[in-house]
Simulated scan of single mutants.
Amino acid sequence: MKVYFPKKSSDFSVKTTIHIHRLFEKFGFDEMFGRSAVIELLEMKGSGASKLLSNLVQADIIEPVSGHGKGKYKFKK
């Protein structure tokens, strides 16, 4: 499944864009994920995963999910 965030992803590097697509392929719009899932899926260090998540929140691609503990996110529709 391919998804595009045309305007939003143009500001990211190729590597980050690939990370976004890999996350979306795994979680889609319906599943939540946190930092540990990003670390595992993308084989990143904790600090890199945190930075990626905060960049995606700022870019309005993912949003924090409340009521499921701290640090859970999902893709915005």
Rank of each mutant, 00 (worst) to 15 (best):
I39L: 09
M44V: 08
E43K: 13
K45W: 02
S54Q: 14
G67T: 08
I39W: 03
I62R: 07
E63L: 10
S50Y: 01
I39M: 14
I39D: 13
I62N: 03
S66L: 08
S66Y: 14
S47H: 12
S54K: 13
I61M: 10
L52P: 04
H68M: 12
H68D: 07
L56V: 04
V57I: 14
M44F: 11
A37D: 15
G69R: 04
E40I: 02
I39N: 09
Q58A: 12
G69N: 09
A49L: 05
A59L: 07
I62F: 03
I61S: 01
G48C: 03
I61P: 05
A59W: 01
K70S: 13
G46E: 14
K70F: 08
A37L: 07
S47Q: 14
E63N: 05
V65D: 01
A49K: 02
L41E: 11
H68Y: 15
S47C: 00
A37V: 03
G67R: 08
V65N: 05
A49N: 01
E63H: 05
Q58V: 04
L53V: 09
K51R: 15
I39E: 15
K51D: 11
A59Y: 01
K70T: 13
Q58S: 13
I39C: 06
K45N: 15
M44P: 08
L41C: 06
M44A: 02
V57H: 04
A49Q: 04
L52S: 02
S50I: 05
E40R: 15
I62C: 10
A49R: 02
G69W: 11
L52D: 04
V65A: 07
A49F: 02
D60G: 13
N55F: 03
G48P: 04
I62A: 05
E63W: 03
V65S: 06
A49P: 08
E40M: 09
E40W: 11
L42V: 09
G69E: 06
Q58L: 07
S54V: 02
E63P: 00
K70A: 14
G46I: 00
S47P: 00
G67H: 05
L52I: 08
A37H: 14
L41W: 13
M44G: 02
E40K: 15
V38F: 05
S36Y: 09
V65Y: 11
I62S: 06
G67P: 06
D60M: 02
V57C: 06
K45G: 14
L52Y: 03
S50M: 11
H68E: 10
S54T: 12
I62Q: 05
L56H: 02
L42A: 10
L56Y: 01
L53G: 03
Q58F: 04
S36Q: 12
S54F: 00
L42T: 08
K51H: 11
L41S: 07
L42Y: 09
